[in-house]
Every structure is written in C-alpha cells, then in structure tokens.
Amino acid sequence: MAVKFFGQFLVEQNIVTSEELLNAVHLQEKNNLKFGEMAVSMGLVTPAEIGRAHNAQMSIDNKLGDLLIEMGFLTIVQLNDIITRQKNTHLYIGEALVQEGALTNDELQKHLDAFKADQAQYVTDGIELPISTSDNKVWEMTADLTYKMITRVLGLQFRPGKCAVSTVIAPNFMMAAMDLSGDVEARYMISVSKGLQSSIAKAILGEESVAAEPTEVLEDTVMEFVNIVCGNVAAKASQMGIIININPPVTIHPPLSGMQVPEGETALCFPIHIGDGDIMELYLLIK
C-alpha cells in the first residue's frame, strides 16, 4: 500500500530473502558503472581528468559530463556514447536476481506483472499548475500523491480545487509541515479544520471516536499523514531520478490573519474540498 521499488516488493512478499536481494544489489553496483567510471573504462578520459572535474564541481554546480566538455576533456558525441553505453549495459534488479539464481525468468515476469499491478494505483494523473518551472513534474506528482493518500489512508471523499499561486497562507485550525531538501527545496504543508483533524485521527488510529484523545495525539496524526505522503513523494521522486530528503514533521498554528509567504518563495495552494463541505488545503512553499 505504498510506493515501492521492485526489490523491496520481492523482500516484503517473502519471494526473495534480504540476503539474495543484497547479493543482487552488489552485482548491480559492480556492473552499473557511474558516468565517470564508464568514461574511464571506455578510454575516453583519464582518472586524473575525472579528479579535476570533481574538484571543479565543488565550486561550479554542473553535471560531471557537462563539466568534462567545458574543460575540453570530452566531446558531445563522446558524452552521448557514454550515456548510450550506460543504458545498454544497465543491469536491472530483476535481471540481477536471475543471474544470482534467486529467480527464474518465468518467475521474474510473473512477479514483475504483480508489482506493476500493485504500483498502478500510484501512477501520476495530470494536474495543471499555474507556474512553469523545471520541477513542475515533482510538484504535480506531490499533489497527486496527496490526493491518492487522502483516499487510501484517510478514506475521505474529496474534490480537488484549482491550484493557484498564493501570497498568504490562509488561517485554519492547525497545519502540519515537512521540509523537503535535496534536488528540490520546499516546505510541504497541510492545513486542516478541527473537524478534519478529527477525521484524520480516526483514520490513522483506526478508532471510531477520538473525542477523549489528547491534543498531542490528534496533532501527531496529522503530522503522520504528512510524513506518509512526503515519504512516498521521496520514493516516487527517486524513481524519477530526483533526490528528495525529508525532515521530521512539525505542527503550526497559524494566526487569524494568516501567514505571509516569505519573500523569494512561491506558494502553490491546492484547495481540497472534502465530502461534508470542509476544506483541506495543501500548500507547497517552493524556494
């Protein structure tokens, strides 16, 4: 019931052991050369040139291949040759498990089909954003996974509203937030009413009534929902080749006047209309 990669699915389902998976990962690590390693193995650059490009990367935010071209160690044609060789020789985890004898080819196909069916529920649907950035795909996926988790984890009926750029974070009963770092920098925030906090607590705790629960527990359930969504966003992003690190969630009690969006940040607001007339809001504060 979460975004997974194939190896994890196999271990979780007890189809392969953790030892077999680690052996296959080890085989992948030996086989799947990084860009610099592949460039050296093809005799196109020397280890010393790679070292100079790595040093340059400390002060220039650029990919290794692009730097090697800028420094005159590679041509664009050679760069494309290296990338093609990487793609053509890439060993997938399933193939590595077959090579290690943990699975047969028939078993691999059968389990791949089951895995794809399990993960089909997390295929991202189209979402329109009012901004245009190189990270739009990440933010679309983040909103989409939020919607999917509202259905799967909270069991709530909802209708997504139109996403808009906002200059103020509107006041509400409480918010839970999590900072995302790595290839993207943003704060993920969910804003809920008192009634919605209660609905989230019931779903997370699996209780019919949460009236007697202390505030600390009720707020924790909203933070846990944020944690679940952001962890799965990080997993989905890693499948897209994007690194996202998550930090422990926090609660925020916004003032009645709302909160100004910090200068230099863009706030995307996704209104989420819940079945009984309540509104949840997802904010992405993008740095």
């Binding site: 979460a2 975004v3 994890q8 998976l21 969504v229 962890g231 997993a235 989905k236 890693s238 998550i246």
Partner: peptide, 12 residues
C-alpha cells in the same frame, strides 16, 4: 518501519 521504504537506496 518507514515512509521512506520505497526509496531504493534507503531500503538497501
């Protein structure tokens, strides 16, 4: 037990 289980390198 983690929400990051699906991040391949965290899992391994």
């Amino acid at each position: 037990v983690t929400s990051l289980g699906g991040v391949g390198d965290k899992f391994t």
